[in-house]
Design a protein around this nucleic acid. Structure first.
Ligand code: SF4
Ligand code: SF4
Lengths: 153, 153
DNA sequence: ACTATATAGGACCGATCAAGTCGCATATTC
DNA sequence: GAATATGCGACTTGATCGGTCCTATATAGT
């Protein structure tokens, strides 16, 4: 329950890795997979998905690979999860097609929808850059960087 | 991914229902199940779980049933989910026993752990009472009730 | 041209887990 | 003692996740 898929996990790791190597023009799926021990074929498909949704730019052939399509600051964890796992919903209803059959009688779907939005907001407030540049975290200048999320049930 | 189990859903609904009927000494699992169309046997086991974790008080026999063990304000959604679905973790690692085998090389588990805490905080800030008393939401007095959650990746 | 490298993507499989059912034991009230 | 209700474990079914395999295509270097 409420568990991130490993695919999304891997995707985040890969994007972070790409963000940490801005000098290289492109890194292959195998490069990234080897760096962490992720199954190469699996990661390949994940990166393909991220490419199709526009988060990555790919280049086939030798010395090919993937590179971030945007600045790491402009890519949110939410987008990554969305790309890999599809629409983000914590409840079974709101899942377009075959939802929970007691949707009409349910009285908590509205409040839960708000919780859903809140969590989505948290994810949206996290960028790949945030994951990557951990080292300067404490040495950050006066204005501490922190996302404020308001939750009104 | 990141989806609440229906069991937790049902549990929240049931608790809310109990919170809305404070006059009755106890409501049976069947009562609640019929009120929403939840499979009775399934809900029974959920309520038993909630009883075992101390969120509900049960009474067997005729006119028996369940009642909230505490005030609805003192029961958080987090506790409910925890009781029904077990420990709350969005990642596969930190799952005590058989975790992800690339835990050592993973570089995002720490940031994700912080996200985990943030989401847990959101859930903790929601009480059964919040789910139940929806009607006076807009008519609330000056100080608007809203949970502030700080997220520092 | 040929080959090595790399992306693109479909088919498939096994393990796990959620959801729900069944059966039986126990407690309580009438 | 019958009706009601909790308590609890075993079980079945279906979906989803994690992962593999196989093929097609694109590109760079020799
Ligand atoms: S309808 Fe109510 S019970 Fe069914 S999934 Fe949505 S929230 Fe959960
Ligand atoms: S170790 Fe990294 S990859 Fe494995 S589960 Fe934890 S976070 Fe996800």
């Amino acid at each position: 329950m409420l568990k991130l898929t490993k695919k999304a996990d891997y995707g985040l790791m890969a994007l972070k890795y790409l963000a940490e190597h801005p000098e290289t023009p492109a890194l292959s799926a195998k490069d990234v997979a080897d760096a962490y021990g992720i199954p190469a074929q699996l990661l390949a498909k994940i990166l393909q998905r991220l490419t199709k949704t526009g988060l990555l730019r790919s280049h086939a052939g030798m010395n090919g690979g993937y590179a971030l399509a945007r600045d790491a600051r402009q890519i949110s964890a939410y987008e990554v999860i969305l790309s890999i796992d599809g629409p983000f919903f914590i409840t079974s209803c709101t899942r377009g097609a075959k939802s929970c059959d007691l949707t009409p009688s349910c009285t908590i779907k509205e409040p839960l929808a708000r919780v859903n939005d809140t969590i989505a907001g948290v994810l949206k407030s996290i960028s790949i850059h945030d994951l990557a540049d951990r080292e300067h975290s404490d040495a950050a200048p006066g204005r501490d960087r922190q996302g404020l999320v308001t939750l009104t049930v």
